[in-house]
Design a protein around this nucleic acid. Structure first.
Length: 930
RNA sequence: GGGCGCGUAGAUCAGUUGGUUAGAGUACUUCCUUGACAUGGAAGGGGUCACAGGUUCAAGUCCUGUCGCGCCCACCA
């Protein structure tokens, strides 16, 4: 039943009703329906500790637009929601909470701590899910998944074991990124580099005295062109090295120079005294050293630098770890033991200064890795970790994108993806935390003690990492906890303490959420059928920084475990920034809380404003005022609908009849165009364009024009049906973008059915609605009305005062004008309008060129300033003549006529003719004033 | 060091495969509370499309270079 709308739109009340309706309604539940086309999106699982920020709001609005549009288009549309367990972040949150009670996780022990984390998850873990509902997300909520669900965890273990058995998972001692605050290893992607202005310290390492230097190090070669630095080398009693991290010198086990560096060649093989530690270290030669950097001599700390690690391996140097996991120096650091790494840096610099070994200090901008969870400077750290060999996994993933099976939108991200994939390094997946999937790895200490680990081959490309002995004695990788050691039968087994990187579970999201892997029992089950039906998913929507973390890895996992890509299209949207272009973040205090925006303006306003601002893939600069536009649109929709409902009852439910007025044909034609273009834009992931088209049509065509035109005939059933019909279609176009208000209004229109939009109700363009003549005729109407309004303004005539006017044109155009004269009269406030094909200029009148040979004359009746009018005509004449000249030059150009498409030439010719006519008319009118 | 993106109205941005007079919302000016909406309506001002070359009949759009800004990747200690 058609209902009246209250005078004021109340987004809070509307949204409250609909979001709880959707959360429970089966509408968004999708299932395998043979013969029906599936459309699947998996949510980028938000971090379970997260709260909704603008980035989420944008990301999920886009997904919601896609899923709602596809559902209306008749697809079996599934949006799989869920969260990931966010190992480090969640553990940090709970640890912080414990710290408030003066406790650490170690005080509680592993089991008790995990209990607390689960408790926290139960209590707070659904915050973001709840917020997504408020945003209006049409997820299949009962399917909500969590990466630590029992079934999901099974998939993680399965994948680890399979990769291990294929030799693609290995463990070994390598340099990894270590966060001393979180006290865990991090993957390379988890330690993004940030530019810092650090210092480069030049430190002198004395040469051991007793060795005896060659008398003249430069003898024989290049002696004639001894540079100043070489000159200094003569008197050299030590080698100066440059470093940004002086504290690591405590772990130095060599100094390296380039083998062909004349400054140092003679010193290769000599021994230096490592200052402070007073330890002897050799001078070695390695081509990795850059002669041009610093002094051309580099201190080698194999346990604390990835390059040095490689050199350490190839030169068989000792590895001295000077750091404890918490970033404090250990007993290897001599008297500095117990100091924090930065504290030790200062102390060491002081001591070097005292000994006159600190030669100089200079500013040095460089990029330093930071923990992506706590922003602490990470430490390259030598430790035993588990890795995934990426080479074999990356190859199919590269092919998938190169072949176009997976497409990025916008395209430019393809290159970013490929570049990373082609230079991929092995992935460190073990984390020294407790919250997460514990490695399915068990050790038999007895066997381990007797096994001899093989030394890994240095491998520059993977930072020295590479599979050590994959299958080590005493290491058991198993889907279920083994009872005893298969080698020695010992029952004294212990499980590895580490857990897996969170991404090692979320990379399985597109298929693990469906219940993969299926055992024999599950064969033929509903879940298995669903996976077959919904996989590969259709679109993945995410932010650029997630390409490496997640997108790339999902493609690899999909290819490896499903034998198929995980999704066809990857839609990358921009980063949300503030007005100054800074990334929105809590720490900067510049973030706009989407929940506050929802409270103040409504979720639809938030969604609309986000999308209309977000040109495909470019970053978004937001200010609060942005959301007013969205709010205003809601208000406009509400009021337009209210007006229509005030007039139209149930009789307006039916589609309008075929006998249509010109304005009806025009609005239908415009609607048709809008439907086509909006649909096309949604398909092409151009959401801002899509919503802008709908906005323009609704506001300017439908409200500003059609609604005004319709008022005089609003009593007729035809007009009422038209209004309801076009409004309904427009609301449907808007629905994916602004689900709340559109549902609300659609539900109150005449003929509305039960709550919730039925599938397959996306407006379809209809050829029969296209009507070019009406577009042209209405164009004449509007041009004429604009001209009249301009006159009114110039003459200071109020809207009330009715004026007399005459329209002149050639016969054909006059006929058209005749047919729309009532509209012009009405919109222009004309008392008396005469349309004639007598094209003589009307003296004592204001005139305006409407189009081609159509002219408007406003009869003056002695009210007008003749001189002012003359000046206006002169100006208009001048402008028109200028345009005419341009056109003539263009068409006079033979090349143009020859090469331009016929259509264009024809259009230009028509325009030229129009201009010629216009000039003639203007001259005539001007003469009339003389 | 490599890669990518961006310089268009006061500020923020759109601008399809080159093709009539370069657009939007916002801000600004003037007028209007007429029965949908002042969160509104009507009209208007405001642009050397960063700069310099080139391709073309035609360039905001394509190419080259310069300047300015931003982002991502990278083991120069």
């Amino acid at each position: 039943m058609a209902q009246q709308l209250p005078p004021k739109y109340n987004p809070q009340e509307t949204e409250e009703r609909w979001f709880s309706f959707w959360a429970q309604s089966p509408l968004f539940h999708a299932q395998a329906v043979p013969g029906k086309k599936p459309f699947t999106i998996v949510i980028p699982p938000p971090n379970v500790t997260g709260v909704l920020h603008m980035g989420h709001a944008l990301n999920n609005t886009i997904q919601d637009i896609l899923i709602r549009a596809r559902r209306l288009q008749g697809f079996e549309a599934l949006w799989m929601p869920g969260t990931d367990h966010a190992g480090i972040a969640t553990q940090n949150v709970v640890e912080r909470q414990l710290a408030g009670q003066g406790l650490t996780r170690k005080d509680l022990g592993r089991d008790e701590f995990l209990k607390r984390v689960w408790g926290w998850k139960e209590k707070h873990g659904s915050t973001i899910i709840h917020q997504l509902k408020r945003l209006g997300c049409a997820c299949d909520w009962p399917r909500e998944r969590f990466t630590m669900d029992e079934g999901y965890s099974r998939a993680v273990v399965e994948v680890f074991v399979r990769l291990y058995e294929k030799g693609l998972v290995y463990r070994g001692d390598y340099i990894i990124n270590w966060c001393p605050r979180c006290q865990t290893a991090l993957a390379d992607e988890e330690a993004p580099h940030r530019d810092l202005v650090g210092k480069l310290y030049y430190i002198k390492y004395p040469i051991k005295k007793s060795q005896g230097l060659p008398a003249n190090p430069l003898r024989g070669r290049g002696a004639g062109k001894v540079s100043r630095s070489q000159g200094r080398a003569k008197a050299m009693d030590g080698i100066i090295v440059a470093t940004t991290r002086p504290e690591t010198m405590l772990g130095d086990t060599a100094v390296a120079v380039h083998p062909r560096d004349p400054r140092y060649k003679h010193l290769i093989g000599q021994r230096l005294i490592l200052p402070l530690m007073e330890r002897e270290i050799p001078v070695i030669a390695d081509p990795m050293v850059d002669k041009k950097f610093g002094t051309g001599a580099v201190k080698v700390t194999p346990a604390h630098d990835p390059n040095d690690y490689i050199m350490g391996k190839s030169h068989d140097l000792p590895f001295i770890n000077i750091l404890r996991p918490d970033g404090v120096l250990n007993t290897e650091a001599g008297e500095y033991a117990g100091m924090d790494r930065f504290e030790a840096r200062e102390a060491i610099l002081e001591d070097l200064k005292e000994r006159k070994l600190l030669v100089k200090t200079e500013d040095h901008p460089h990029a330093v890795g930071h923990c992506y969870r706590c922003h602490t400077v990470v430490e390259p750290y030598l430790s035993k970790q588990w890795f995934v060999r990426m080479g074999p996994l990356s190859r199919p993933a590269i092919k998938a994108v190169k072949s176009g099976a997976v497409r990025f939108h916008p395209k430019r991200w393809t290159k970013v993806y490929l570049n990373w994939m082609e230079n991929i390094k092995d992935w460190c997946i073990s984390r020294q935390i407790w919250w997460g999937h514990r490695l399915p790895v068990y050790y038999c200490d007895k066997c381990l003690a007797s096994s001899v680990p093989q030394a890994p081959a240095p491998n520059k490309k993977s930072r020295g990492r590479g599979p050590e002995a994959c299958f080590e004695r005493g290491v058991i990788v198993s889907r279920t906890p083994p009872q005893k050691c298969p080698a020695c039968g010992s029952t004294g087994l212990r499980q590895d303490d580490d857990v897996l990187d969170t991404w090692f579970s979320s990379w399985l999201w597109p298929f693990a959420t469906f219940g993969w892997p299926f055992d024999a029992e599950a064969a033929g089950s509903v879940r298995e059928k669903e996976l077959a039906y919904f996989y590969p998913t259709s679109v993945l929507v995410t932010a650029p920084e997630i390409i490496f973390f997640w997108v790339a890895r999902m493609i690899m996992a999909g290819c490896e475990f499903m034998g198929q890509i995980p999704f066809r299209d990857v839609c990358i949207h921009g980063t949300v920034r503030d007005e100054e272009g800074r990334k929105m973040s809590k720490s900067l205090g510049n973030s706009i809380d989407p929940l506050e925006v929802i409270k103040e303006y409504g979720a639809d306003a938030l969604r609309f404003s986000l999308i209309t601002t977000a040109a495909s893939g470019s970053d978004i600069y937001l200010s609060r005022e942005r959301f007013e536009q969205g709010r205003n649109l809601c208000n406009k929709i509400w009021n337009a609908a209210r007006f229509i409902l005030m007039n139209a009852g149930e009789e307006a439910a039916a589609a309008p009849g075929e006998a249509r007025s010109i304005q009806d044909r025009w609005i239908l034609s415009r609607l048709n165009e809008t439907i086509r273009r909006v649909t096309r834009c949604v398909d092409a992931f151009k959401f801002n364009e899509a919503v802008n088209l709908a906005y323009d049509f609704f506001w300017h065509d439908f409200c500003d024009r059609y609604l005004e035109i319709a008022k005089p005939t609003i009593a007729t059933t035809q007009t009422r049906q038209m209004l309801v019909f076009v409004l309904r279609k427009t609301l449907l176009l808007f629905h994916p973008f602004m689900p709340f208000i559109t549902e609300e209004v659609l539900g109150k229109l005449p003929g509305a059915q039960a709550a919730g939009l039925p599938a397959e109700s996306w407006p379809a363009a209809q050829k029969s609605w296209d009507d070019k003549p009406s577009l042209k005729a209405m164009e004449l109407v509007f041009r004429t009305v604009y001209a009249i309004r301009n006159f009114r303004r110039d003459l200071n005539l109020s809207g009330q005062s009715l004026v007399r006017a005459r329209l002149t044109a050639s016969a054909a155009k006059a006929k058209v004008l005749e047919s729309v004269a009532p509209l012009i009269k009405d919109l222009g406030g004309i008392a008396d309008l005469e349309v004639t094909c007598d094209q003589a200029a009307v003296p004592q009148s204001l005139s305006a060129l409407i189009a081609g040979d159509a002219h408007l004359y406003l009869l003056l009746e002695g009210l007008v300033d003749i001189e002012k009018e003359k000046a206006r005509l002169d100006k208009q004449l001048e402008e028109t003549q200028g345009q005419l000249k341009n056109k003539e030059r263009m068409l006079g150009n033979k090349e143009f006529v020859k090469k331009a498409p016929e259509e264009v030439v024809a259009r230009e010719r028509a325009r030229l003719a129009e201009l010629k006519e216009a000039v003639i008319r203007l001259k005539e009118v001007r003469r009339a004033f003389n």
